[in-house]
Amino acid sequence: MKSDLDLEPGDLLVILRHGPHGTSWLREGLDAALVAAAFGRRVSLLFMGEGVSALVTGQQAGPLGQKGTAPTLEMLAMYDIETLWVEDEALSSLGLAEGDLMLPTRPLAAEAIERAVAAHPLVLTF
């Protein structure tokens, strides 16, 4: 298992732990990430737990009229947010593989997550 974070940590780590439609946590967490990036901060994103489901391909707007988050996720590259990590354990517990995700991500094991959190001066959890 590749355990070292060979990517340089950013100024800010945003942890996303909620799926797209049930609450606004994911959307508002992504907003924080985009704003930070727009202000020139280097942002890393970590999808944990149910948050991993946000990355599943084919996401649409919510059937109840929610806006949906897939279009926002597609804009991450435009904002130079390219460090995308997913919790390895969440992937397997949801029965997902990297190939099911809409963006290139890097799975992190629990101890790598610890180090990612420790390496960032600011961590915001949504």
Partner: peptide, 8 residues
């Protein structure tokens, strides 16, 4: 932006 600024 204020939140990010505060945090840092």
């Amino acid at each position: 932006g204020q939140l990010v600024d505060l945090g840092l």
